[in-house]
Design a protein around this nucleic acid. Structure first.
Lengths: 161, 161
DNA sequence: TATTGTTATACTCTATAACTATA
DNA sequence: TATAGTTATAGAGTATAACAATA
């Protein structure tokens, strides 16, 4: 899934169109299918609008957690985001190379490294978080504010412990 | 994301736990984040319970669409599932090798190939669809029937044209 | 002995270009 | 010329094993 673009019209001249359209009613009765499709639509929009910052979803999530949890460790980031430690190494290293995060020795645990946003990182994230809010509003423009809150509450009932 | 297993407890002895836990409230206010997390939890459960059939989510979705749309073409499957044509080739080829689907020449378009479920395919999908229903019910056990319908309706307002 | 961060690596998923056969 | 199916391949994402340093 997650194609770049979907053809605006697949017309009625498709082969096999004795039936007007494809019946996907079974799949559309599944939460997993619906949640994945919705997530991919929003992620696609994210990719479009966040490319100016050079931030993929995982970069943004990482920076956002560091912003709101200064001194957070890689291990904690992995647990919070569901990323495996070996896969976080390059993500953090790249953000460090770009001067967005800084690694400081952990105050009490010599094995761990605390992560902090740099001044640049803070500045970028103020803009980036506002952009994400705007993009989410636009992606959910067919929902009322109340429906949006209901939707998030119901989703969290599924994935939160 | 989508780790195999999450540690049951990350205890309070994590380094940097002056604050009790990580603040993910910003991310948790985003639809994209919530939809993705929920989808991954359900997909993880899918992987567990559907492994007996040897069906990944994409195999199941493909077979389900073929089941309910006999004669559907690869192109139509790609459009319905958001898969790119080169990536569907092996999926269909493998299902064919396993004797679950059959390819028949399209009645009116010589370029296209109509897909149909074999007798075995139909038998497996009757079981598999029931298993998916059960797995979805268990994954959404903290939702009422009404909440479940509301959730799907709201998700479709995001991704459906 | 267990955990943090890391390297190396394999596997899966997704994407692009280009070809053929038919429309 | 455009479309259906296909091949080959590149790139991103995700997984496991194993290591050094510290607890």
């Amino acid at each position: 899934m997650s194609q770049r673009r979907t053809k605006p019209s697949s017309s009625a001249s498709d082969p096999g169109s004795g039936e007007a359209a494809i019946d996907a009613s079974f799949l559309e009765s599944l939460l997993g299918y619906n949640a994945r499709r919705a997530a991919l639509v929003i992620i696609e929009r994210f990719l479009d609008r966040m490319s100016v910052y050079g931030l993929r979803p995982v970069d943004f999530s990482t920076l956002s957690l560091v912003a709101h949890n200064p001194g957070i460790t890689s291990r904690q980031l992995c647990a919070a985001l569901g990323i495996l430690p070996p896969n976080l190494v390059r993500i953090v290293a790249d953000l460090d190379k770009r001067g967005l995060v800084q690694r400081k020795p952990h105050p009490t645990d010599g094995r761990a490294i605390g992560l902090h946003l740099s001044v640049e990182g803070r500045k970028m994230m103020r803009e980036a978080e506002a952009t994400v809010r705007a993009l989410e509003d636009s992606a959910s423009s067919r929902l009322t504010a109340e429906e949006r809150l209901t939707l998030m509450s119901l989703l969290q009932k599924i994935y939160k412990p």
